[in-house]
Computed example of a mutant assay.
Amino acid sequence: MSSIQVRPATLRDAKAIAQIHTVSAQEVYKGLVPDEQLKSMSVEKRQAYWREAIEYCEPQVQVAVDGEKIVGFVGYDRSRDEKSRPTTGEIWAIYAAPTHWNQGVGLALWDAARDGLQEEGCTNVTAWVPLRNERAIRFHELAGFKRELSTAKTAVVGGVKIEEVRLKRPINA
């Protein structure tokens, strides 16, 4: 039985969110982004970003908690894609601490984001995922997302070009 609880993030959570974001990104992007770029990822910059996101609810942020410890987070809101319908939501970020991978944290966060987007009136949800991030692609596909291959684009992460694809699913599927 999982002891993972999900709740809205508070400003006090920003540092823990930033630490999970940094450590997870460093693990996930190993081999995709040069090591010096990974080492230069700043918890402080991410903490400032997530503090602002939490304060202004853009995106909405929820955290997964195991006991008293934050072990993951999700940021979601309306889609940032141009020409997307106002009823399309987007998972802006979803990360679990590497120590809690494959323990239901991502699923708990996805369930919370889906509920939040549904309350906002969204009928579909998208997520942009690096094509070479097999863990994230697999997670989203297991959660019912389908690749929209015509959406492939190149994003720049730490000065390195990363191919991304948009995945999409109905909220109520």
Score class of each variant (00 low, 15 high):
M1D: 14
S2I: 08
S3Q: 11
S3P: 03
I4R: 09
Q5R: 11
Q5N: 12
V6R: 05
T10F: 08
L11C: 09
A14H: 04
K15C: 09
A16K: 14
I17G: 09
A18F: 03
A18G: 11
A18H: 03
Q19Y: 01
T22P: 06
T22Y: 02
S24N: 06
A25T: 11
A25S: 14
A25M: 13
Q26C: 08
Q26W: 01
E27D: 15
E27C: 11
Y29L: 10
K30A: 15
V33C: 06
D35K: 14
E36P: 01
Q37K: 12
Q37H: 08
Q37R: 10
L38M: 10
L38R: 00
K39V: 01
K39H: 09
K39Y: 00
S40M: 04
M41P: 00
S42W: 01
Q47E: 15
A48G: 14
W50L: 07
E52S: 11
E52V: 01
I54N: 14
I54R: 13
E55L: 14
E55N: 13
C57A: 15
P59R: 05
P59W: 04
P59F: 04
V61C: 12
V65Q: 12
K69N: 08
F73Q: 14
F73N: 12
F73L: 12
G75N: 05
Y76N: 05
Y76G: 05
D77T: 08
R78C: 09
R78M: 08
S79E: 07
R80Q: 09
R80A: 10
E82A: 11
E82M: 09
K83N: 07
S84V: 03
R85N: 08
P86E: 09
G89V: 02
I91M: 14
I91Q: 07
W92A: 10
A93G: 12
A93H: 04
I94F: 04
I94W: 00
I94G: 04
A96V: 01
A97K: 02
A97M: 02
P98G: 08
W101R: 11
W101S: 14
Q103P: 10
Q103F: 03
G104F: 01
G104P: 02
G104D: 08
L107I: 11
A108N: 08
L109W: 03
A113M: 12
A113N: 09
L117E: 08
L117H: 07
L117R: 06
Q118V: 03
G121C: 06
G121E: 09
C122S: 10
A127K: 05
A127V: 15
V129N: 01
V129D: 00
V129L: 05
P130R: 02
R132K: 15
R132E: 15
N133I: 01
E134A: 08
A136C: 12
A136P: 10
I137G: 06
I137A: 07
R138Y: 13
E141S: 10
L142H: 11
A143L: 12
K146Q: 14
E148Q: 15
E148P: 04
S150A: 11
T151L: 07
A152Q: 15
K153I: 10
G158M: 04
G159V: 03
K161W: 00
I162K: 05
E164A: 02
R166I: 13
R166D: 11
R166L: 14
L167S: 03
L167V: 02
P170F: 01
P170C: 06
A173D: 10
A173Y: 00
A173N: 07
